[in-house]
């Protein structure tokens, strides 16, 4: 009886561990600039933690990188520490290298960014782990190209632990058919979205479709469309009403066909049909 009680009696270390697990974000949050996003993840992206950015196709890699740039800039405003971006050589051949002018125009300061190019995924993860342990860094971005089975729960767990202890925010960008199990606090699916046009039908500010796939601070499954404003440094949510209904080019009617019938009925039927077509594509 005495021994049983001793075994069940919690030690101080065990209690501390349990409390730390429940404590949401010991290092604070990076707010994304929009209230709905911040609320959904409990105040913003937690600092000193591992976050996953996931995309189903390689064409979305640039959008993920742009989203990561936005996070870098917001994190830099909170705490101006240097950041590290780790890529693989293969990525430069497939999707192109990181272009510094484009980077600065999206927001982050390049003076304090260090780029690491590795040959293999193992090197990339080792470099990421090393960087996650360095307290002097602010954010570490790992761009995984070809996982080949080297990423698993253990490695992500180690990354998350290292980030917690040092206060470094780690963003892991991966392109895959299915997201792998990982110890990240949040997982976002990022894909490029049509932007709100500028004058003369010019492409507008970078817009992304975000889906929250995993969230330790609340529910998952929400979707947002956000636009990155690099001057104010905020992700602005784009409500569905202001999204352009038509995402395809209009095919102009030929001049010889009557635009509308002389009497009202057939004309209105045509217009209703058109409206239905709009609703389907928009």
């Amino acid at each position: 009886m005495q021994q049983q009680t001793l075994a069940q009696k919690p030690t101080l270390e065990a209690l501390k561990r349990v409390c730390a697990q429940d404590q949401p974000a010991p290092h604070g949050h990076i707010s994304l600039g929009t209230e709905e996003l911040d609320e959904a993840v409990g105040g913003g992206l937690a600092r000193g933690a591992l976050h996953d950015l996931y995309a189903p196709h390689t064409t979305s890699l640039a959008a993920m990188a742009g989203f990561a740039c936005g996070i870098l800039q917001r994190s830099g405003k909170l705490d101006p520490k240097p950041s590290l971006w780790v890529r693989q050589h293969v990525a430069s051949f497939e999707v192109g290298r990181l272009h510094a002018p484009g980077f600065t125009q999206l927001g982050p300061v390049l003076d304090t960014l260090v780029l690491v190019n590795t040959r293999t995924v193992a090197d990339l993860l080792a470099a990421g782990l090393e960087a996650a342990r360095c307290t002097a860094l602010g954010t570490v971005v790992l761009e995984l190209w070809n996982r080949a089975g080297e990423l698993d729960l253990t490695i992500t767990r180690r990354l998350a632990l290292a980030a917690e202890q040092s206060g470094v925010t780690v963003l892991m960008l991966q392109v895959a058919a299915q997201p792998l199990p990982s110890a990240a606090i949040t997982r976002w699916q990022v894909t490029p979205a049509p932007s709100r046009p500028m004058a003369a039908n010019a492409p507008g500010h970078p817009s992304f479709d975000l889906t929250l796939l995993r969230n330790r601070a609340g529910k998952t499954g929400q979707r947002w469309r956000v636009e990155w404003q690099h001057e104010t440094g905020q992700f602005q949510s784009v409500p569905s009403s202001s999204r352009t209904a038509l995402s395809r080019r209009l095919v102009s009617l030929s001049g010889s066909r009557p635009v509308g019938p002389p009497d009202g009925k057939a004309g209105s039927y045509q217009q209703a049909d058109y409206a239905q077509a709009l609703a389907r594509t928009g």
Partner: peptide, 13 residues
Amino acid sequence: PGDPPSRPIHLFE
């Protein structure tokens, strides 16, 4: 000011 970025983030060699 007010314009979106004029240079891409990924550039092919």
